[in-house]
Write a protein that binds this DNA or RNA. Structure first.
Lengths: 263, 263
DNA sequence: TTCCTTGTGTGCACAAGTGGACAGACTGGA
DNA sequence: TCCAGTCTGTCCACTTGTGCACACAAGGAA
């Protein structure tokens, strides 16, 4: 514990690197993370795994790591779920706002499979009670998540399907860190936007005609990211700005945050 | 303080009645409310007063009382704000999720004027630190508010303007306690739904043709509430159910909660 | 009363999005 | 290698919603 400054710095750096690849967890101070560390486990998930169904007791917070992605689905009278927001390595799902032990309102679903860190919500709440700074990080993230949902509400009200399609693809790529592909069928894209499949195909077709992307069976390859940005609404950017104000460095940047190794 | 049981009971009842007419404040135990009471003030507002603009530091929690109504507006690139959720006497606005002292993401606007109770957010947070039960009431409300926004996101994605119009009118009436009128021009209705004015007029016209409502210059008179319910999506009900599970009795019922005085 | 502003009803041409259909193209597994 | 199931591109008729225009109605101020 009482190492010289240099050692402490090195310890801290390597300690952060050994944490799960989730920006929220990595944002915590060493002391704060130490409160959680004994209760953190990591599990692998596959696409379409369900983390919560409406009405489930929320007892575990899930932190997407690396390229994993979760979404909140709102069930609908026809049985069609509507996808609302994406959560990747910048955040967490489950009891973030409610502080747990309440019935889930939405369904939470793994969109792109991969590792998720898990912490029991009671352990997290206990840690929040012990550390103000830890509590604040989570309150700040809750605020960012709220911003994301608000923006999404507005976006669905007024932006065209073309804009929303482009937005969704960019948002997914930012979070996974994948520079140019999204593993998604037209059908899945249509469902998550809440639109008809044939129209989704047509939008992709128009993007393809303009050289913005290519389509493969089951995936979309982005060829011109700036072109896609031009066709997207600004909802992503608005949310990103709020993240930067409230939780600087947590929102994934375009540059892969992993290895800036040169040489 | 050390009165006999009977006196205490009477004290409590009258004490609740003397609180501002906000269901969240009235839901608090006497002890919890006592922590807040010294810091509660009540102010009158007029329609279109702004409580927060995006970027403002959130320092005060506002509790709509009686028929007052606030809305969260998401600013848009064209300058058109998009209205997202309504908050009436079942809730509060400002720092509910963020716990304050962060820049506001949305604009918060008084939709229908009237009294609002105000509490400094730092005072509220201090009270939450002292009382677990008080903290839980607010965490539960935050969860309900989140549910409301999620539902709104889904609603905007898939429900028709006719359904959303009916939903909005019903939601506003539930909250104000006004049994059959909503003070709104077609223009305002259109703006808050994010649609064109002429189409909003046409939807109202069709409702009128079916005997569901009448229109006056600047207000809408509901003639057949069940008919309106039939034409609305079920989003209101889904949110209401979550309120009942999580914060029973806080969501305003159809019956005016005020004076069940007989004789 | 008269004027002037704001709100309302409606017509029209057009854009956006739906939902069903179907042929052809991929791809994994037998 | 072939088959079956899924995914994709495109067509079509139709509904929903847009945006603009314009005449008329209501109601407060002078």
């Amino acid at each position: 514990m009482a190492g010289i400054t240099m050692d402490a710095r090195i310890d801290k750096a390597s300690e952060v690197d050994s944490r799960p690849a989730n920006n929220l967890l990595r944002r915590l101070s060493q002391a704060d993370y130490a409160l959680l560390a004994p209760h953190v486990t990591v599990e692998n998930t596959a696409a379409n795994d369900l983390l919560y169904n409406p009405g489930d007791d929320v007892q575990v917070v899930h932190f997407p790591c690396g390229p994993s992605l979760a979404t909140f689905l709102v069930p609908n009278e026809d049985g069609r779920d509507v996808e609302t927001i994406l959560v990747g390595r910048e955040g967490a799902v489950g009891g973030i706002v409610s502080e747990g032990f309440l019935p889930a309102y939405t369904r939470i679903c793994v969109k792109f499979g991969g590792p998720f860190a898990r912490v029991n919500v009671a352990r997290l709440e206990a840690a929040k009670q012990r550390s103000t700074s830890l509590r604040h990080v989570f309150a700040r993230y809750a605020d960012c998540m709220l911003a994301q949902i608000f923006q999404s509400t507005a976006c669905n009200a007024i932006h065209s399907i073309e804009q929303r399609t482009a937005k969704w693809i960019l948002a997914a790529m930012e979070r996974t860190g994948d520079e140019n592909s999204v593993p998604l069928t037209h059908e899945q894209l249509a469902t998550l936007l809440g639109v008809g499949r044939s129209y989704a195909s047509r939008v992709l077709q128009s993007f393809r005609a303009e050289g913005v992307l290519e389509t493969r069976r089951g995936s979309i390859l982005v060829r011109n990211r700036d072109g896609l940005r031009l066709r997207a609404c600004l909802c992503n950017d608005a949310v990103k700005m709020h993240f930067e104000e409230v939780l600087r460095g947590v929102y994934p940047t375009a540059e892969p945050s992993s290895s800036p190794v040169r040489g």
